[in-house]
């Protein structure tokens, strides 16, 4: 997989077009305002994978992630009239996604006392990781999930979803300086957690022709 390709398949984040595609996000939204379901479907396809993964890494639960993803798009549709094309669509949809995640996390906090949700999530997550115990991706996932939410969010938006600092600042609602420092902290924490594994995988990769991620 080419570098920076994973979620950056929009190509140009500003206009929301991918190489080879004609219609921008904004143009699609114009059509959606006239109740065009197929235009909406295109937008959904453009954003669903990266939003799903963002939500999943914030909430740690696959089922809920899909529910929230669904609700995000429903909200976009419900509030289509209020979309202001002077702002990037991507910023708008990320804002909605993050708000929903934030609400969900707040809800969970209330039940921290009972611990039910926590147990449920931990058990779910643990069982998912079991088969891949030695897999790098699971190590990486665990490392990311161990980051505190604020840092994790900033990190995911920047380094995984490739949003600009400007967009992150708008979507999360914090100053740019704060974004930068959170991203930085997250990166450093991540590096520290991965340090022992990095060396191991590096050593292995030296003797084997396989790329690191397949080990």
């Amino acid at each position: 997989m080419a570098p920076s390709d994973q979620f950056d398949s929009t190509g140009n984040a500003q206009t929301g077009t991918r190489p080879g595609e004609q219609v921008s996000d904004k143009e699609l939204m114009e059509q959606v305002k006239s109740d065009d379901a197929s235009a909406f479907g295109i937008l959904v396809d453009r954003y669903k994978v990266r939003l799903l993964n963002l939500i999943y890494r914030l909430l740690q639960n696959k089922e809920e992630a899909e529910d929230i993803l669904q609700e995000t798009f429903l909200r976009v549709y419900r509030e289509r009239e209020s979309y202001d094309p002077t702002y990037a669509f991507s910023t708008w949809i990320y804002t909605i996604t993050l708000n929903l995640c934030r609400n969900e996390l707040k809800k969970r906090k209330k039940f921290k006392f009972f611990g039910i949700d926590l147990i449920k999530n931990n058990r779910e997550y643990a069982s998912q990781g079991v088969e891949n115990k030695n897999c790098l991706s699971s190590t990486l996932d665990k490392a990311i999930l161990s980051l505190p939410v604020k840092y994790r969010t900033a990190f995911l938006l920047r380094d995984v979803n490739q949003l600009s600092y400007e967009e992150i600042s708008q979507s999360v609602g914090i100053p740019m300086g704060t974004v930068k420092s959170r991203v930085n902290r997250a990166r450093l924490m991540l590096r520290d957690k991965l340090k022992p594994k990095i060396k191991e995988y590096y050593e292995l990769s030296k003797s084997s022709p396989m790329p690191i991620q397949l080990l």
Partner: peptide, 27 residues
Amino acid sequence: RVTSLVRNSLETLTPSPDFNQKLLSQV
């Protein structure tokens, strides 16, 4: 190495196959 790991090795979830259909019926 860390940056390239994050870029290339994260597991990517995909929505369930009927996700679009369910969504569009709601819409």
